[in-house]
């Protein structure tokens, strides 16, 4: 019996614990098929690099969001935090190359710290994360506007390498996002605390009875989410050359879509960041395809909504039959 269990052919762990990943890959394949039919340039390597590059910002935020959702929570402060960090980046650097390193580090630390404050508030006030992070989002937006009512500062010319640069032909920002994703996936799998993220999301009451340290777990997930927001803020500042106080506003809800497309349960406890990465890629790919097909920007939103509805409905079906 136990021998048989050990002899069982092990699927790669990325796939094994992630039934949703298969779903998102199928969807990507579908979009590719339609794309190939629509235009012969769609399936080109260059186009894929483009799409990959366009995935960066959404991928970065959603990776952090995945963690909070895995732990049974949610982070609705991401949009404001992205706005704040992008404003601070360009405002503080203010076209002075000497400040780049210090400011980048400071911004990443700040983002992480805001995430940790979110976690502490959730623990200390015993309030649902939805509400805490919603409140935090409003506060951060206010702070951002106090700092800048319009576009603020500038980043030095070299800084936009983060957004447009290519290393060995690969877009730098997107590659960093992938590396971050892999790192977090490994941490989730090989750190005890990472496993406990799943446990907490699976059953919070059991986690309490077993004596898991909820505060630590929440610090990890909200801290990471804050870090990811700061990274997104940096990236957007690099891309636009300037920080804008409303630049992150749409990411709050948009960051949830890739997570769900990637097969992470919104109720927590199941899923992973790799799926999210592909989820973000799927959305960029879809927008790209619709561009190829000359579909108006407005209908792209409709298409996205339909994809979400279809995807979540299909996942539900699978869960039921199991």
């Amino acid at each position: 019996m136990t021998g048989a269990a050990n002899l069982r052919i092990e699927m790669p762990w990325l796939l094994r614990n992630n039934a949703g990943l298969a779903g998102v890959l199928v969807l990507i394949a579908l979009v590719c098929l339609v794309g190939a039919a629509a235009s012969d340039r769609f399936l080109s390597f260059n186009n894929f690099l483009n799409v990959f590059e366009q995935t960066t910002d959404l991928a970065l935020v959603s990776i952090g969001q995945t963690l909070t959702i895995l732990a049974g929570g949610i982070d609705l402060s991401v949009g404001s935090l992205i706005s704040l960090t992008s404003c601070l980046t360009s405002g503080l650097i203010n076209n002075n190359p000497d400040r780049v390193v210090v400011v980048v580090i400071a911004v990443l630390v700040l983002g992480t710290a805001v995430g940790c404050v979110n976690a502490s508030l959730v623990v200390a006030l015993r309030v649902h994360p939805l509400i805490v992070t919603l409140g935090m989002g409003a506060v951060l937006q206010g702070v951002t506007l106090l700092y800048a009512l319009g576009p603020v500062g500038r980043v030095p010319r070299g800084f936009n390498f983060l957004a447009y640069g290519r290393v060995y032909g690969l877009p730098l920002g997107a590659t960093l996002a992938v590396l971050l994703c892999i790192l977090i996936a490994l941490l989730l799998r090989y750190l005890p605390l990472g496993r406990q993220v799943y446990a907490l999301g699976d059953d919070a009451n059991s986690a309490r009875l077993v004596g898991l340290r909820r505060t630590r777990i929440l610090m990890l997930v909200y801290g990471t989410s804050g870090f990811c927001c700061a990274a997104t803020g940096l990236y957007l500042a690099a891309r636009f050359g300037v920080g804008q106080p409303y630049t992150g506003v749409n990411y709050t809800l948009a960051s949830i879509t890739p997570v769900v497309l990637g097969g992470t349960l919104l109720s927590g406890g199941k899923g992973g960041v790799v799926g999210t990465l592909f989820g973000a890629f799927l959305i960029a790919l879809l927008n790209n395809l619709l561009n190829f097909m000359d579909v108006s920007k407005h209908y792209q939103l409709v298409a996205q909504a339909v994809i979400i509805i279809l995807a979540v409905s299909v996942y539900v079906e699978r869960r039921r039959t199991m």
Binding site: R195, Y198, A199
Partner: peptide, 25 residues
């Protein structure tokens, strides 16, 4: 006080995870 979606092994050692010499699971 179980975690329904996690494996039997993970449930048994939750909070007292088995690590290798690098401190990783």
């Amino acid at each position: 006080a179980l975690f329904p979606q996690r494996s039997v092994a993970e449930n048994i050692f939750i909070g007292h995870e088995r690590r290798n010499r690098f401190g990783l699971l």
